[in-house]
Design a protein around this nucleic acid. Sequence first.
DNA 1: TCCAAAAGTGGGATCGGTTCCATTTTTGAC
DNA 2: GTCAAAAATGGAACCGATCCCACTTTTGGA
Lengths: 335, 335
Amino acid sequence: MATLRDVAKLAGVGSGTVSRHISGTGSVSQKSAEKIARAIEQLNYRPNSMARSLSSRRSDLIGVWVPSLEGPYYHMMIRAIESELRLQGKHMILANAEDAQSNEDRLAHLDYLINRDCDGILVSSSLQSEFELARYAEKFPNLVVINHRTDELAGRTFSIDHDLGGRLAARHLVELGHTRVATITGRLSAQDARQRHVAFLDEMERLGHPVAPERIIEGAFSYAGGESAVAALLTSGADYSAVFCGNDKVAMVLIAELHRRGVSVPGDVSILGYDDVEFTPFTAPALSTIHAPIEEMSRSACHQLLNLTYGLDLPYQEHFEPSLCVRQSTGPSCQ
Amino acid sequence: MATLRDVAKLAGVGSGTVSRHISGTGSVSQKSAEKIARAIEQLNYRPNSMARSLSSRRSDLIGVWVPSLEGPYYHMMIRAIESELRLQGKHMILANAEDAQSNEDRLAHLDYLINRDCDGILVSSSLQSEFELARYAEKFPNLVVINHRTDELAGRTFSIDHDLGGRLAARHLVELGHTRVATITGRLSAQDARQRHVAFLDEMERLGHPVAPERIIEGAFSYAGGESAVAALLTSGADYSAVFCGNDKVAMVLIAELHRRGVSVPGDVSILGYDDVEFTPFTAPALSTIHAPIEEMSRSACHQLLNLTYGLDLPYQEHFEPSLCVRQSTGPSCQ
DNA sequence: TCCAAAAGTGGGATCGGTTCCATTTTTGAC
DNA sequence: GTCAAAAATGGAACCGATCCCACTTTTGGA
């Protein structure tokens, strides 16, 4: 493989000139530029990215930490991030902490990114205590958090107003006449799950239809977690005309199980999801849900990370509002 | 940030000794090892990965090229690959060619990986002509292809026997008594889509129930492609008691649309998918499908790539067999 | 034509590891 | 206690860029 100095020699110029020509910084005369271009062509030269990184002290690598890669949620995030990064000529490396057993393990995944000398890091976490992000964020200024909000990290957290989301859910169901409403939540130790849940309960109460405790099932945002929560709900004996699910995956599992039992949706029970992931138009019936602008949030987080890391000035926004998205899985209460 | 030489100085040993201690190659006395460990601890030393890469001429980066990141298929692949790579201390960088407009664009995405000095590259492509992989593979010995089979690249292509898959589909439907069977295919320019389609048609014919041309819709393996293919099928006026869909995404779209129209699955029409992605147990009704061992294939491809690239000896297998996975979306023909 | 400012240039030092090699130290069989 | 083989060691050269700086050339206004 030809090196920059080979190019310089062949072109009959100094190595600095070639470097300047390639990186586009500094000035190079027309004549030199042509000679260099020719030499590059002739030698089939390609700059060595490691040497470049070492000497410029920038890896052009952005680390992305996700707690899981199951289901469409994080996929949508990664898809959005990858495309933003590519636009800026950066590369994403991924750490999926899904198989981590302990908190220590989870941090080890973060170290896996840091040890790789990422220029910046995107963390998608809704966990609070478990994972002392703040401590990391302090050591690592180019770290930004998606789907979480803390004041200590102002300007570096990107979030959706799940309080509003929870309330929109409650209002929608109540407007349809549902008074006996059940809910399956995510793990309540996660900020996003708790927030929407608490707001949902509060809004239901405010609207005069408090949710009875036996109608609340704490689940988890995974297919398996959804399955057991759904089973718990269906065997609990609780009665309800609508179920608000903490995310779309759980709603999908619930619809499938109700179908299996011959329960009609929304005829017998209305189902409302949350997130509005990729597949929501294609459940049967199509899932009514709270649209969370996951991709916009991810892109914003990415932009701001790039700004912090490379001194760019890309547009971004820290907080986003969810909106109601009515499809076919919710309907008027038939009581 | 402390450097290796700082560590050496503090520990009172030579830089070579520290290097050997860290990388675990070569021998270091107990006594030196302890002094070095202490110095590392004290200086909070972390090796610089770029310097390491430059001098060892290995980036520990594996590039992964995918044609799209929509839907669960490629995500399952990436999830499997990421976990294998992490096990070996390697990092994945991703190029999603989904937004590529032209063939040139697609190749540019590959170059994006190559320019990054990836040690090895995994390409997931089922496209034949469009994308002259062979030429790249020649220049780049550490390149391996997932979900494609070519003899020129023997030992470096990993595939599923979609011929068998197509036949299993036909047999299942015929065994259930279906004689009027429709099918929605993927783009037939893709090897995997064509293979299963051709085999399906052939097997149907062999079983005495050739598929009439008006019951064949060429679609694409995306939600949007699924939607238009489904619309085409439903407005075509063709009659059928079962539909074989080229992948699960399309099957899901079809189930949703049939639900909307009040058509019962499998009561009125049986639906058979292909791939057995993540969500198949959770459609309503749960999707019968041809299970394609995507994750195993991805892991094998990854293993072999690591073998080629780093001289490892991980177990792998080049070709995989699909199997029938019966759930609730297929049932006996009621004619 | 002159001259200061601007543009362009070459090459050496540097980034922080790995690797090689000549040299020293340790080991253990006799 | 001797000595050859094995283990351990230090340091210089190297990987291939970037970046700085002192120097030369070009530019254009007076």
